[in-house]
């Protein structure tokens, strides 16, 4: 990737964010939302309604969508590199299922948002650890992914169990809707708890982006390039798990993005981590903001985001795969 694209990649999410703040039931133009956003700095007298809609309602969930999109895309790219497997996603290690179980359990016991996040994080990371323990010492790619599948199905069964015992009047729908994913619960308070972990994980992956190319090589090659393969792989897995668990705890399960965005990034800038990671972070944020804006504006009621990402993401992915096959 050329250096000159960097400003565009940095600006793109911000421009998307400004456009998205203007879209919704209460429609605000691009110029108006810009003025409202900078009202404090410029002393612009914004309409009270517009100010409240932009800053209190739309901004938190746009911020959440941007960070979740960027984080899950970076995590997906990291997993794909670590396992040299284009199909590896944040779900591969069972992290997403583990975190889902943790959050569902917290909802069942009626704990507050913070409690839900912590429980999701604990179970997400435990799932990751469990997968690594099952995979054992050899840590070969296939045993890690098979371990992840086993752990994932165990936690999915546990989620089903939680749903089964949940009160069908209020708990069951809450858990079910939450599992489908939504940015609607975003507030500045919840952002303050969850975002630092997403930022931390994404920053680690970004800083290690060049190492991702080495870790994707065969074990002997990577080791003979003088890299501590076990350590770097563990750092990537922990960072990506941290992101996944935080995202799941804040907005439920959002599928497809960890697969779709890194693939698009590879098609744009080649498969080197040096370009895949920055592209994934930027495009992931943009993609998720657009998805969330669609989710809240397409119909009067909100559409769960995982339904949208799958309905839009899957056909897009198939189209991309077909195009790539034609070219080779």
């Amino acid at each position: 990737m050329k250096k000159r694209y960097l400003p565009i990649l940095t600006l793109l999410p911000f421009i998307t964010a400004v456009i998205c703040t203007g879209i919704g039931r209460y429609s605000i133009g691009f110029a108006e939302s810009l003025s409202v956003l900078f009202a404090r700095l410029t002393g612009y007298e914004a309409a009270k309604n517009a100010y409240s809609v932009v800053w209190n309602i739309r901004m938190p969930r746009i911020i959440l969508a941007a960070f979740v999109g960027a984080g899950l895309s970076a995590a997906g790219a990291a997993f794909q590199g670590v396992f040299s497997n284009a199909l590896a996603t944040p779900d591969t290690l069972g992290v997403a299922s583990g975190a889902s179980f943790g959050a569902a359990l917290a909802m069942l016991t009626g704990s507050a948002l913070f409690g839900t996040q912590v429980t999701a994080l604990i179970f997400g990371c435990s799932a990751c650890l469990l997968t690594m323990v099952i995979a054992g010492r050899d840590r070969s790619v296939s045993s890690v992914i098979l371990g992840g599948m086993a752990v994932s199905s165990v936690f999915q069964a546990l989620v089903a169990l939680v749903k089964y015992v949940a009160d069908p009047v209020d708990e069951l729908p809450a858990i079910t809707y939450w599992l489908m994913g939504s940015m609607a619960r975003a507030s500045y308070k919840s952002l303050a708890v969850g975002l630092p972990l997403i930022v931390l994980g994404t920053a680690v992956i970004f800083l290690l982006r060049w190492r991702l190319d080495i870790i994707a090589l065969s074990e002997d090659e990577a080791a003979s390039l003088g890299m501590n393969v076990g350590l770097v792989r563990a750092v990537f897995i922990i960072a990506a798990s941290l992101i996944t668990a935080s995202c799941v705890s804040m907005c439920g399960q959002v599928g497809w993005i960890g697969l779709l965005v890194p693939h698009i990034s590879r098609m744009i800038g080649g498969s080197s981590g040096k370009s895949v990671i920055p592209l994934s972070i930027s495009l992931g944020a943009v993609f998720m903001m657009i998805m969330d804006t669609l989710a809240r504006t397409m119909t009067a009621a909100e559409i769960p985001i995982s339904i949208l990402t799958a309905l839009i993401g899957a056909p897009m992915f198939i189209a991309l795969l077909r195009r790539r096959r034609d070219r080779t």
Binding site: D213, I214, L217, L225, M227, G270, S272, K274
Partner: peptide, 14 residues
Amino acid sequence: PSYSVREMVTLGRS
């Protein structure tokens, strides 16, 4: 992996 030749050789500097 589908890195360019230059990217691949650069990994040797690791």
